[in-house]
Computed example of a mutant assay.
Amino acid sequence: MKFVVSSATLLSHLQAISRVINSKNTLPILDCFLLELDGNVLTITAADNETRLETKVEVNSSEGAGSLAVNSKNLLDPLRELPDQPLTFDVNDETLEVFIYYHNGKYNFVGLKGDEYPKPKELKDSAIVLNIPAETLFNGINRTVFATADDELRPVMNGIYFDITADDLTFVASDGHKLVRVIHKDVKGDGRSSFILPKKPANLLRTLLPKESGTVELKFDENNAYITMSNFVMICRFVEGRYPNYNSVIPQNNPNHVTLDRLALLNALKRVSVFSNPASSLVKLQLSEDKIVVSAQDIDFLTSAEEVIPCQYNGSVMNIGFKAVFLIDMLNNIPSADVKIELSDPSRAGIILPAENEENEDMLTLLMPMMLND
């Protein structure tokens, strides 16, 4: 088979799907891209054992049809150094030797048989279809993926939980210390269904979705999903197991309410946390009527810092401790100028909310406190 394709177009599609390929694979063929030519359309696939990503490129001219697997480095590394120009791929169907001709040179290597590449899992007839606006899916993943765990003992915590009802779609992520729940009212299922999307495909979607517009089709059964975008199709396996009841850990009666500028608190935490004990990253928030005192200290090195931030506070005077890196993560991911913090007492989780939610979106974050010594 033979075809001509723009080097810049090919490179952008290869780079987008190459993130699926693991640095170490049990199957050597998973180090490869699968190229399949049919008419003037070249389908390129990259995969690992759990996730598969396909994209289509229109070629300028073609002869023949077929498939072969090509080592990803052999394609990607030289293409990165080439200026945009037509590339001619000439593949010997018998020996699988590939010649790539460009403006003032050529290179060649030998591919592998395309039919040895793993096939995608088929969905069951009972598969459910859900259409989600690309922006909604991006926001749900982007606001929650940072809170997923890396826990070999509890793999269900290592992904984003999609909770679908006839009223809304809820994205949840938690590592046991922090939890994020984002409810989207603009997506409704036909009934109750749910799945856990692993962290790797979630991060891949996070890079692909900003370039998408319109809706994304999510078709899934108990074990796998086909996620169809305008330029890409992702096939991934879910994390198996039951997700914990996330609503039961959200404290309901929180009489102490703070409203303050998100960036003021975020920047104060970044400065003050430098002086916290590196092992614990503990910062103390001292809450009183019109101000929060943010403080940290490292007794071993006799360093300390404190800053005062104005706020509106309704509640009793309270000292509460949090892990600074977690609190900074949360504030970085809340899309609002002001935040509300709701607290019951220093031993119970604090709830951090955007003062104003985005349209059709309801976001809640929760952070477990740390014990203060004094």
Rank of each mutant, 00 (worst) to 15 (best):
K199P: 03
S295P: 08
K185W: 01
A202Q: 04
T144N: 03
L353G: 13
L11R: 01
D362T: 00
L112M: 14
L53C: 09
S230Y: 02
P198D: 00
A8Y: 15
D338E: 12
I160S: 09
F195H: 04
S336K: 04
N253C: 13
S304N: 09
I235M: 10
I183L: 10
F138M: 10
A349H: 07
L96H: 09
M370G: 04
A268C: 03
I132E: 04
L82T: 07
H257M: 10
N231A: 07
P255E: 07
N332Y: 14
F3K: 04
L302W: 07
P310E: 03
L372V: 07
V172Y: 13
G214Y: 13
I100H: 08
M370A: 08
T365W: 01
K219E: 10
D261K: 12
A16Q: 12
R237N: 10
E94Y: 08
D338L: 04
F33T: 04
H177K: 04
Y243Q: 02
T88C: 05
D31N: 14
D125C: 08
G191R: 00
S62L: 13
D150F: 10
F162A: 07
Y107G: 06
L76Y: 14
L76C: 12
S316K: 14
F275D: 15
Y226L: 11
D84M: 07
N319G: 14
V145C: 05
V274M: 09
V156S: 08
R348E: 15
R192I: 03
D345F: 00
E306D: 06
A264L: 12
N224M: 03
T51V: 06
I160Q: 07
P278D: 02
V339P: 12
A225T: 11
P86F: 08
S276T: 00
D48W: 11
G140D: 00
E122N: 12
M229H: 02
S7T: 09
S12I: 11
K56R: 08
T45K: 01
D31L: 12
R19P: 14
D300F: 10
R143C: 05
P118W: 08
T303V: 14
L82P: 03
I44F: 02
I29Y: 09
N104G: 07
G114T: 03
V283N: 08
L87R: 08
P244A: 02
N224H: 12
K284P: 01
T228Q: 08
S67G: 05
